[in-house]
């Protein structure tokens, strides 16, 4: 296949039985890939890295990655769980890539030391992975992936397993590094905050398919999957009209009114069910109500006490028409900000 040279990443690939993904990204772009377990996120990333077989094309700066072996791709992969070589020091881990690609030992070591310095862990160069904290080890893993000067950086759940403080610090640091990285970054994550703070495109995978694709703001405001709705903490209701067209309605748990009797108003925005759980959420009490579909509702602690909102309590939920956003489920791939 001949294609006019175009920088960035143009993907249309299928990992048989696992995932089918289309994606178009410009150099410097950061794409967050989100979706539930088993949605095909890791398969997609491993296919780009050349670790699982895939059909189709994945053009990186005009070269089809899928025709190259893993070692010949200009791709850096940060594995879930880091996979730092346990018998090598931090420096040797980072220098491994440049050395494998034929650079001299001195040269590779200098590159590695520079990268470790950039990540603020230059003084830990001599340590083995087991002597590093989770956050430090993750920095070494990212430095190792960047040491080969990849055109495509793949990060597979880089914050998983870190404590909250370490994850937040690394997030801020990573944002700075990604801002100066002129290749394409694909970031697999299960945290809404990563998609919202680090990415300029979000790719939502569900059961091996792209369920939604757009800017983080767009995806957060108009989630197409239950998974994303849960991640950003909003309610999502699906309705299919007589012609079979599906419409989605989303609204915040804050805008839900909880009452013990059937409320006035549009029946379309009312649900009856029993409280499944009640948990402190910020300064409110967040209820999960077992209706069709299950919905979240935030109430004040006083209201929760007055209405006796304990698990098992039957309640009515309603929301004002002005507080909901309605859109079609085919409403995707709208990447422009609005």
């Amino acid at each position: 296949m001949t294609s006019p040279y175009s920088p960035g990443l143009q993907v249309d690939l299928t990992v048989p039985g696992r995932a089918r993904v289309e994606l178009d990204a410009e150099p410097g772009a950061v794409i967050a890939v989100i979706g539930p377990n088993g949605a095909g996120k890791s398969s997609f990333v491993r296919a780009l890295a050349g670790l699982v077989a895939a059909d189709g094309t994945a053009l990186l700066d005009g070269t089809d990655l899928l025709t190259l072996s893993a070692r010949d791709r200009e791709v850096g992969l940060v594995f879930q769980g880091q996979l730092l070589f346990p018998h090598l020091s931090a420096l040797d881990n980072v220098a491994f890539g440049p050395r494998s690609r034929g650079r001299s030992r001195r040269d590779a070591d200098r590159t590695a030391q520079d990268l470790l310095d950039t990540f603020g862990i230059g003084h830990l160069a001599g340590r083995r992975p087991r002597e590093l904290s989770g956050g430090q080890a993750q920095r070494v893993a990212i430095a190792r992936a960047l040491a080969t000067e990849p055109r495509l950086l793949l990060l597979d759940e880089p914050f998983t397993g870190l404590d909250v403080t370490a994850a937040m610090a690394l997030r801020i640091e990573l944002a700075q590094h990604l801002a100066s990285f002129d290749g394409v970054t694909v970031l697999v994550t299960h945290e809404a905050i990563d998609a919202l703070t680090l990415a300029d495109q979000v790719l939502v995978l569900d059961r091996g398919r792209v369920a939604q694709h757009g800017t983080p703001q767009h995806v957060a405001a108009r989630p197409a999957t239950d998974h994303v709705a849960r991640l950003v903490g909003v309610n999502l209701v699906r309705e299919t009209d007589a012609t079979g067209v599906e419409a989605l309605t989303t609204f915040s748990p804050r805008d839900v009114t909880v009452s013990l009797r059937r409320p006035e108003g549009s029946a379309r925005l009312q649900w009856q069910g029993s409280v499944a759980s009640a948990q402190q959420h910020g300064d409110a009490v967040r209820l999960l109500v077992d209706c069709e579909p299950p919905l979240l509702a935030d109430v004040t602690p006083q209201a929760a006490a007055e209405l006796g909102l304990a698990p098992g309590r039957d309640v009515w939920l309603s929301v004002k028409a002005t507080a909901v956003r309605r859109y079609g489920s085919a409403d995707e791939d709208q990447r422009g900000d609005r």
């Binding site: 893993a70 992969l77 996979l83 491994f96 494998s100």
Partner: peptide
């Protein structure tokens, strides 16, 4: 696999 992505034979 990690070594392969880093360019090792």
């Amino acid at each position: 696999a990690a070594a392969a992505t880093l360019g090792a034979t």
